[in-house]
Design a protein around this nucleic acid. Structure first.
Lengths: 157, 157
DNA sequence: TCGATAAGGTTTCCTAGTCAACTAAAATCG
DNA sequence: CGATTTTAGTTGACTAGGAAACCTTATCGA
């Protein structure tokens, strides 16, 4: 009669880790957001890039790669997709002939506020389950974690 | 002189959303864990499947798909990889000729405690940045979120 | 100033998922 | 009982990202 485990060894369960709960909640929020913006024809990564360009007038792909915590290869493909959708434009850098500048098109600029509203809505839909004070506490705890570990890049995966 | 945005419109920033901080931290924890177990030759998804089998003696792929929140196609490929690594074994279900049973091999069973130790280590390495009380608070907030939204499946993506 | 090195981008190959089509077997129900 | 529907699992097409090889252009240093 095979045993499933040696009863003498107590093994931590998956849900014994805070990382488990972080991933569970984070995933639900992100997937919810992905669903809420797919009607606008964009993905979460695309939203992040568009939102960053909204503040920057124009940016080099390599700069976006650092900001977004993605490889330059990924940014290259991501911007290809956004070019196909006519949400951004690509121009040669006048000073550096290797470099490019990415900028929002009018359509891209018009889309960002809509997506931002959906982001707001998604966030409050999920986190209203906590009271307002607990939302603040959660934010403080997460920012403390980010601070302690020097987390800077916008995460996507 | 082009403007980057209409100053009359205040747009929420990426980091104004709790979802942003959740993803930032969750991602760092998960990637840290992925790195810490890659020396053992397994991925996070593989770890989760192995850990679940550790408690169950044997399980049907379809059952694991529900438990892990993945499609049956993904489980099919995931178990192929674990079979190749000789960490699990696949047997025909005696009662249902469509179904299979997956179970840990001796090697798989021996590996799980090592991975569990790495999971413990990774979790405490990250969350020790918070004090013990704050760790408890964070866990309570996350579980409250999971409860409120009926989140059940172990998330992976 | 010119040769080596670094930096910007693209492309190719690889991994790991989803979705949907497909096969086989079981379950349902008229 | 037999036809239909459901369920289990695999497979193939597709997506999105990482790693590394690869051009091109800048930069740096002897």
């Amino acid at each position: 009669m095979p045993v499933t485990s040696d009863p003498g060894i107590a093994l931590s369960a998956l849900h014994d880790h805070l990382g488990y709960w972080m991933r569970l909640v984070s995933n639900a929020v992100s997937h919810g957001f992905a669903r809420s913006i797919e009607g606008q024809g964009v993905t979460v990564a695309e939203w992040v890039l568009l939102r960053m360009l909204f503040d920057q007038e124009s940016a080099a792909p390599s700069h976006l790669a650092k900001q977004m915590g993605m490889t330059k290869g990924a940014i290259s493909k991501l911007s290809d997709r956004l070019l196909d959708k006519h949400l951004i434009a690509r121009a040669a850098d006048t000073a550096d002939r290797r470099a490019h500048r990415l900028a929002l098109t009018a359509a891209g600029r018009a889309l960002v506020p809509k997506l931002a509203a959906l982001a707001d809505e998604n966030d409050s839909r999920f986190f209203k389950a906590l009271g307002p004070e607990d939302q603040v506490r959660l934010g403080n705890l997460l920012r403390a974690m980010a601070e302690a570990h020097g987390l800077r890049n916008t995460p996507l995966s």
